Computed example of a mutant assay.
Amino acid sequence: MSETSDAPEAPGAAGPPAPPAHPGVGRTVGRMVLALALGVALGALGTATHRTLWHGLPVGLLVALALTASTALLCRAWAGLGTLAAAAVGWLVAVQVLSMQGPGGDVLVTHPAESIPSAWAGIAWTYGGVLLFGVVAFLPGRWFARR
């Protein structure tokens, strides 16, 4: 005969834990706003530093593109394609706004037509970042699935 007790169970000893609740709309919007801000910050940082050379090597461009790829992966893994798209929009807006000619005629992103030796870095930065966001968007969803 098994012995049963009519005493109430301890508050923390109730069965297996409940599965995590689906994030609400407010949490999703909050994540998208944060991803947008991260994209803007990274686009501005990369635009300001992509032409940095160290002993003739394009270290600034490589670091900026590596940070862009890691941001894209982070946002996709964090909350899916919505946050990835928000980060991409923020990145693209920041890069395009900062690529325009300033009031004094200065530009942060040069073009090959301007015959500046580092003009190729501007093309690599603008198109490379867009390409990285696109590649991360088409990675298999199972790579980002929670187990």
Rank of each mutant, 00 (worst) to 15 (best):
A94G: 11
Q96H: 10
A44P: 02
L36M: 08
G90A: 05
R27A: 14
L62T: 10
E9S: 11
G30T: 08
A119E: 11
A14I: 11
A79Q: 12
G60C: 01
S70L: 15
Y127M: 12
P58T: 00
G102E: 12
S70N: 11
G102R: 07
T28F: 06
L36S: 06
V40N: 00
A145M: 13
S70G: 11
G26D: 11
L62R: 02
P103C: 01
A13T: 08
L45D: 09
S99E: 11
G56H: 07
F138W: 06
G102Q: 14
A88S: 13
G122D: 06
L108E: 01
E114H: 06
T52H: 08
G90T: 12
G128P: 02
R76Q: 05
W91K: 02
G90F: 08
P23N: 01
G102V: 09
T110P: 00
L38D: 00
M32D: 01
V109R: 08
T68N: 13
W143I: 10
V93M: 09
L34S: 04
A44K: 07
S2Q: 14
P20H: 14
A94S: 15
L74N: 07
M100C: 02
S5N: 08
T52C: 00
A14V: 09
L65H: 12
P23C: 03
L57H: 13
S118V: 15
A10K: 03
E9I: 06
V97M: 14
T126N: 09
G12T: 10
G104C: 00
L65V: 13
A77F: 10
S2A: 15
D106Q: 08
A121S: 13
G39M: 01
R147E: 13
D6N: 09
V25M: 06
W143S: 10
M1Y: 10
M1N: 04
V25P: 02
E9F: 08
G80D: 09
F138D: 00
F138C: 02
W143D: 06
A37Y: 05
L45C: 07
G141K: 07
P140W: 09
F138G: 02
P112I: 04
G82P: 00
G39K: 05
P16S: 02
V130P: 00
V107W: 09
V93P: 03
V33F: 11
C75V: 14
W120V: 06
P11F: 15
P17L: 15
A145R: 15
T4F: 12
